[in-house]
Design a protein around this nucleic acid. Sequence first.
DNA 1: AACGGCAAA
Length: 802
Amino acid sequence: MATLPIVQYEEKIIETVENNSIVVIIGETGSGKSTQLSQMLHRRGYSKIAVTQPRRVAAVSVARRVAQELGVQLGEEVGYAIRFEDRTSRNTRIKYLTDGVLLRESLADPELNDYSVIILDEAHERSLNTDILMGLMKRLVKLRSSNLKVLITSATLDGDKVSKFFRDCPVLNIPGKLFPVEVLYSKERPVNYLDTALKTALDIHVRQPEGDILIFMTGQDDIEKLVSKLEDEVRSLDEGSCMDAIIFPLHGSLPPELQVRVFNPPPPNCRRIIVATNIAETSLTVDGVVYVIDSGYVKQRQYNPSSRMYSLEVVQISKVQANQRAGRAGRTRPGKCYRLYPSQLYHDEFLDVTVPEIQRSSLAGSVLYLKSLDLPDIDILKFDFLDSPSSESLQDALKQLYLIDAIDENGAITSIGRKMAELPLEPSLSRTLMEANNYGCITEALTVAAMLSTETALLPGQSKTEKKRKRPLSNLPDGFGLGDHIQLLQIYERWYQTDYDIGWCKDHGLQVGIIMYSGISMIKWLVSASCIFFPKLRHSGHTATYYLQLTTYCSVGAGGLFVILLQISTQEPKNNPVLNFLPPSKSKVLPPATYPYDDHLNHYCSHLALLLGPEPSGVRGMTFARDVRKQLSQILQKIAKEPLDIKENRKGEEFRRDYRNLRKALCVGYANQLAERKMHHNGYRTLGFRGQIVQVHPSSSLSSDELGKFPDYVVYHELIATPRPFMRNVCSVEMKWVIPIINKLNTLNVYKLSGGGMDHVEEESGIPDLPKKNVEVSAAADDNESRIQAARERFLARKANK
DNA sequence: AACGGCAAA
């Protein structure tokens, strides 16, 4: 601890913080900023300190580490708060939280008066939430200049910019504890970066002394190709000519038990070669890496506000990213970084900093959030961001919010919008929930919202053997052909009928997800699943017998958080290492009566977290949906004036063949995401400005009629160009529900929405200096008028046919 | 008939 570089700077840091409201800290990797800054300020007597982290695991593991260093019980003086889990108490003085949680807290108390210090950690990653927080902090220090200190940690290349943003606040540089990394550039950009990476890796393997190799690629496809090529090449090397090599793929859609394999130390005289996405850039740290091969590329999600479409593109990384990648080689000893691009390219073409997420995302949710804060002096279009999103993007957000009644025609937040902002959902889904309450289908709508929040519950398993196996999707409900929202609802209802049986998910090819337990919640789980102590777990009410097996354990993050993965299966495991792993005295019986909690076990478990999941791929599966649903219904109950009729779920009501009320609610909620089928084929045109021609995604459960035609109108959850434009997750709606929305589209006036109509200067000038957008509005209005006419005619024609 | 970088409330 004493060797952390930051310790020498304590006096300087404290002095600067005492004299300034905002301080930027440039803390390189290994400087100890995440664990030490909060403790220094705590020692200095600041009453309550919040430290934000962009990732949940980081918030938990750093808090755990700090509690350990201070010798206190986690959740007392030192605690953390992440979604679904608040481990703090009245005594908590240092609180680690995800930036999303702090944003939620500031909704309840915009001045965040609970805190005397707020530290925004990892601000250089420029996550959407951190950027909004930076804007808010700038205001807050003015309001609370006497009793609030803000610290922002960033990267070398970004520090001056952040300082400038905060009125030239002081910047402190804290060196890191990395070993030197020699950077080698290639002479030119390779034609085929996959082959070049292959050659470079083999060259290192054959010529260079021991040390693991980490290769940064862009995605799963390239990783799998490179892994198999590397395996072939390594196998064909002469026996004994060099050391062995073991090759691991590493990316987010890999099941966690395969992800954590890279943490196992390699056998003697064996080199690990890890082929990874940028998951290894920040989220996972592998010790022992000495050589990094950097392709210079990354896949980025991009939002285009004029087409309202997302795309996933391979782009050049930024200098900050390149340096972060290089740094991965110097964690345990001096290393080397092989950049597969020329040094000139790095200096001349690479952006200093990654394009912030706020400039790459749809902003409807963020704008609604800001509106709901009621900041009196703030015009949303002029909100002071470190990097502003384009005005087109902000206007897009305003239009969307207007269409779903979250703001009125003058851009002011409505009472509906206020309630929507309370829900941790995209605006269209929170609007759907509001409407569903009026139509008596809130129970179902909650489930739909929760299932859509998982994004990946229905994805098939990723491993090759999984792909060969035919997905038994045919056994799953089909949504009666009405669309994916209905199908997701039916799937969840089925799962509910099995009493949330994890085996059922597995049998039906659904992602289960990971449940993260720690501390007391983990002990509770251990007790309830006494299978740890008895290898057989009999699932109550069912005849099947499940077995639990410890598959692996490892430590992640700087705080030394231990993760155990347990696997549930219906096959009897060959061995059960759990019994060996637990302290011998506790490995027999733990009767529920001794809980809470056997001191020894409690102490033991306070340094453990447990990830439980049979075969999750990505963290978000069915268990996540269940957590989200519970959270949403709690929030809804809280903000409702009268008690709501929310049931845990409905059983066996599949006779509701048309789900009319639910689809009606969805139509209102997704008024900004409507599409109309083209006359003569199954393509759709999105309604609203600049209609896009799009197709229903082939994976959709939406079915066509006997003539092979899709419904005339659908709502969609997302537009994605991959690279052809698709609507992902669609639901059939009826024209008569759509007409009021089209009418509303006609009243849309961006000028007024963005507050321009209230701008005195422009009004008094008398010059009708209408922005271009107004021209667009009238053009769109004509367009819509003719479309309504056409729709009416078709409607009447169909009626006449019947 | 497509196919998914990483986060988070």
